[in-house]
Amino acid sequence: MIGVYHYMTVAAILFAMGTYGVLTRRNAIVIFMCIELMLNSVNLTFIALSRHLHSMDGQIFVFFVMTVAAAEAAVGLALMITFFRNRESIDVDQINMLKW
């Protein structure tokens, strides 16, 4: 029988994978995809818990998270395009004008 713990474990693994990706990947778009993975693992946690607790709050929260993620994607991709126009790369190792 698959219960809330299974879902939460999957979500925790996804969250850890997202975090690992953000810390190790060098391409800004891949980093952003890893952040989206983290947000979606949170969504999975919310929905599993919402079902488990018989309360709707968690599912409503997920709608807001998805909306916000979409808004962030719009802004983030625009920032990446402007950066790419000036530097012809979106490698985060190239983000090195500002240091110490």
Binding site: G18, A28, I31, I35, M38, E72, G76, L98
Partner: peptide, 19 residues
Amino acid sequence: VRSNEAGLKYFLLGAFSTG
């Protein structure tokens, strides 16, 4: 480029912390 960098850095790390 400096402003681009600031925006992109803030965005990536800000979204990360939101997670």
